[in-house]
Amino acid sequence: MSSNELGGFLRSRRERLTPKAAGLRPGLAHRRVPGLRREELAELAGVSVGYYTRLEQGASSSASDAVIDALAVALRLDPEEHEHLRALAAPRSPTRPRARRSVLRPEVRRLVAAMSGTPAVVIDHRVDVLGWNRLGHALLAGHLPFDAPDGRVRPNLARMLFLDPHHRALYRDWPAKATVTVSALRRAAARYPSDAGLTRLVGELATDSAEFARLWARRPVRTCAHAIRELDHPLVGALTLANETLVLPDDDQQLGLFHAEPDSPAADALALLAHQVSDRDRRVVGEVPDEHSAVPTSETGVHP
């Protein structure tokens, strides 16, 4: 990550806030940019121009809680942006442990597997897929091997969303999903500024996807613990599913669950997908002839 994430975030929010929105009277002088000037923001926050300039230019990498709160008020930050600013401004300890390859606890793996009627997936702070159940795999990435999360290169939701056409085509609300995914990576970058794996992932996506690069430059930090997802599944068609995200705080991991409204077309489609998954699993152990398969078994597309 850039060594001046704090300055970049402050600048992005300063440049989007107009003097009118900030409560300032319009001046007579010509403005080169629509956003606030540094001196205007410094005055609103009650800090010196020199101190604010050092923050934005990276000459000072941390700020007190009082200064952060004053800047958040002056910039009209929402609670999520305020918390992100606080994370960026937190003092960095040179001995702070680096994020390592995440491990899915056996208890969580068994829990996910037991949710046989509900698509479930577990991701880490890099949005690497650590595990999924059969229905979660069939819903999100049936074109990949089921055991892909246990491989050397794990599936990654951001990589799939921007670079894998099969996964991208799943989301009718792709722009909203893309924004939430980039936001998750932005927040992770604030928590783990020395995470080399995260840095490589962001660099790869910014190089290979112009859409990711544009979104990353906007520095979104919106959270999305629950949403309604409109999906176009290649096997069962249109699905409207509620997507709930539960945080596993001890491991900095998230459990994503998908469910349909009872007695809805989406519930019927999800039941059909579960039936196809069950038929495929029985076929693997020799209970159903291969020619009855309704699910492709060959791997296609871009492997994350």
Rank of each mutant, 00 (worst) to 15 (best):
1 M>C: 06
7 G>Y: 03
8 G>N: 10
11 R>P: 01
11 R>K: 14
13 R>F: 01
15 E>F: 04
17 L>C: 08
19 P>K: 01
21 A>F: 01
24 L>I: 07
24 L>Y: 08
25 R>M: 08
29 A>L: 12
31 R>S: 09
32 R>P: 04
32 R>Q: 06
35 G>Q: 09
39 E>M: 04
40 E>R: 02
44 L>R: 06
46 G>C: 08
47 V>M: 10
49 V>D: 11
57 Q>R: 12
58 G>Q: 07
59 A>G: 14
61 S>W: 06
65 D>Q: 11
66 A>G: 10
66 A>E: 13
67 V>A: 12
67 V>M: 11
69 D>S: 14
73 V>G: 11
74 A>G: 09
77 L>S: 06
79 P>S: 13
83 E>F: 05
85 L>S: 04
89 A>F: 00
89 A>P: 04
89 A>Q: 08
93 S>M: 05
96 R>G: 07
97 P>V: 07
99 A>D: 04
101 R>N: 10
106 P>A: 08
108 V>K: 00
111 L>F: 13
112 V>A: 02
114 A>L: 09
115 M>N: 04
115 M>A: 14
117 G>K: 00
120 A>S: 13
121 V>L: 15
121 V>P: 02
123 I>K: 06
124 D>M: 02
129 V>N: 03
133 N>W: 07
139 L>P: 03
141 A>T: 09
143 H>E: 02
143 H>A: 10
143 H>D: 05
146 F>D: 00
146 F>R: 15
147 D>K: 10
149 P>M: 04
150 D>A: 14
153 V>K: 03
160 M>G: 05
171 Y>H: 15
172 R>F: 09
177 K>N: 11
178 A>S: 10
180 V>Q: 09
182 V>P: 01
184 A>Q: 11
185 L>W: 03
186 R>Q: 15
190 A>Y: 04
195 D>E: 11
200 R>C: 06
204 E>T: 15
208 D>S: 14
212 F>E: 01
213 A>C: 09
213 A>N: 06
215 L>A: 11
221 V>W: 01
221 V>P: 03
223 T>D: 12
225 A>P: 11
232 D>F: 00
234 P>L: 07
242 A>D: 15
245 T>G: 04
246 L>M: 13
247 V>H: 15
247 V>I: 13
252 D>M: 02
255 L>E: 09
260 A>G: 12
260 A>H: 08
261 E>K: 07
265 P>V: 05
267 A>G: 10
268 D>P: 00
271 A>C: 08
275 H>E: 15
276 Q>G: 04
278 S>W: 05
279 D>Q: 13
279 D>V: 06
282 R>G: 07
288 V>N: 06
292 H>S: 12
292 H>I: 00
294 A>R: 15
294 A>K: 14
299 E>T: 15
300 T>H: 13
301 G>H: 09
